[in-house]
Design a protein around this nucleic acid. Sequence first.
DNA 1: GTCATCAGTAACCGCTGGTTACCGTCATCA
DNA 2: TGATGACGGTAACCAGCGGTTACTGATGAC
Lengths: 124, 124
Amino acid sequence: MEGLPLRGDLFDPDCPTRVVLDRIGDKWTVLVVSALSTGTLRFTELRARVGGVAPKVLTQTLRALERDGILIRTIYAQVPPRVEYQLTDLGRSLAQPIAAIQDWAEGHVGAVLAARNSYDSSVA
Amino acid sequence: MEGLPLRGDLFDPDCPTRVVLDRIGDKWTVLVVSALSTGTLRFTELRARVGGVAPKVLTQTLRALERDGILIRTIYAQVPPRVEYQLTDLGRSLAQPIAAIQDWAEGHVGAVLAARNSYDSSVA
DNA sequence: GTCATCAGTAACCGCTGGTTACCGTCATCA
DNA sequence: TGATGACGGTAACCAGCGGTTACTGATGAC
């Protein structure tokens, strides 16, 4: 019955930890953070790097991540405009577990797709 | 399929790795896998454990995870019905990176919420 | 008779993720 | 003097899906 828990309980729907999970649970977040983990990128570079993302969605994702202190958005008063995105320390700390997820995903695609095929053919 | 690595490229939108990411990128998946990582659970137990999940959504999540070979669904011909869910080896391997995410989320709620407040008050 | 248990479905609905189109500004090129 | 293109986005629009509240069916307990 602590007042304000330093560590949240993910299983409590009212715990703010959930909102953090919602951030992470966005597929674009994973890709963006992963892309930025190697260094600063501009909007268009991110767009190219993260294949298939629509500009609006990328903007939303970046704004949300900026709001959450995961990355910093730097605007240079130039024409054409120049906007750079880079991870904060917080963002870099997030990049590690995200890399683990990414690693798992890339490493187990085969197994998952196999399970999926097997499941689909058995249910049919 | 064989045990060949078959590493995908997450940044390619046409790579099947993306579908795996979509699975993981579901917030309920994280919670369900995490809940099951400590042992077998029944539907109602899962529902109670994962606070705030609607039955339909839980069913969808569980079916998807079953299809992907992350967990196994065992039905006992009883009345009232008894259905148990447990992680497969694949699921247990996923539980590790997921635990890392969960850990990060629980450990950095404060920082994220602080960043959020700061952002919101500066933008206004 | 009727209540509760369990594991879900049925029907509905609003939001939001996603799409394409378009914007202003300035340098460059014909 | 247009015309064009780069850049970093917004505007308007829409389908789908996540989420909600009912409701089901079989059985044992009361």
